[in-house]
Computed example of a mutant assay.
Amino acid sequence: MATEYSVRTRQSAPTRSTVALKAAMAVTGLIMVLFLLVHMYGNLKLFYGQAAFDDYAHHLRTVGEPFLPYAGALWIIRVVLVASVLIHIGAAVALWARSRRATGGRGGWRYESRRARRGVQRSYSSFTMRWGGVTIVLFVVYHLLHLTTDTIHPGGVSSSPYVRTVNGFGVWWVVLSYTAALIAIGFHLRHGFWAAFATLGANTSLRRRRHLNAWAVAVALVITIGFLVPPYVVLFGGIEA
Rank of each mutant, 00 (worst) to 15 (best):
S123E: 05
R78W: 08
L138E: 06
S84C: 11
T28G: 00
R10W: 02
G64R: 06
G119M: 05
W131P: 10
L60S: 08
D55M: 15
M32F: 04
V38L: 15
V85P: 00
M25I: 01
G132K: 06
P69H: 08
V7G: 03
R100C: 10
G132Q: 05
L144Q: 03
Y5T: 05
G90W: 02
G90F: 04
A57Q: 12
R98G: 05
R8N: 09
R61V: 10
Y5K: 15
S12I: 11
R78V: 13
V27I: 13
G104Y: 05
Q11W: 09
L30C: 13
L37D: 10
Q50E: 15
G49D: 07
V19W: 09
D150R: 14
G108L: 03
A116M: 09
T128W: 04
S126F: 09
I87Y: 01
L21E: 04
A97G: 03
H143V: 10
L95M: 11
W75V: 11
R110S: 07
L60Q: 12
S12L: 08
I31G: 11
G64H: 11
L21C: 01
L46R: 08
A71K: 15
L21M: 07
L138Q: 11
V27S: 01
A26Y: 04
G132W: 03
V134P: 11
L86C: 05
A92T: 08
V140F: 13
A13V: 01
V120W: 03
R98Y: 04
A91K: 01
I89Q: 01
G107F: 02
R117Q: 10
S12A: 14
Q121E: 07
V82F: 13
A24N: 00
R98F: 01
V140S: 02
E65N: 14
R122S: 12
A13G: 01
P66H: 10
W75Y: 14
S126M: 12
I31C: 13
R117C: 00
A26L: 02
W96F: 07
D55H: 12
F139A: 06
R16S: 05
G132H: 04
R110F: 05
Y111V: 13
A20T: 04
L30R: 10
Y124Q: 02
L138M: 13
R100I: 03
T128G: 01
A116D: 10
R130V: 13
G29S: 08
M129K: 04
I31T: 13
A102I: 04
R118L: 08
V79W: 14
T135N: 05
H59K: 14
T148V: 15
S6L: 15
V79A: 12
M32Q: 03
V85T: 06
D150Y: 14
T149G: 06
A20C: 04
F127I: 06
A26K: 01
Y48K: 14
S84V: 07
G49V: 12
P14D: 01
L68E: 15
H146N: 09
Q50W: 02
V120E: 00
P66W: 03
Y142E: 02
F47C: 10
G104T: 06
Q11S: 09
D150I: 09
R110A: 07
F67L: 15
L21Y: 02
R8D: 06
L95A: 00
A23P: 00
L34E: 06
M40Q: 13
S126E: 11
R10K: 13
P14A: 02
V27C: 00
V79E: 07
V38S: 14
F47W: 13
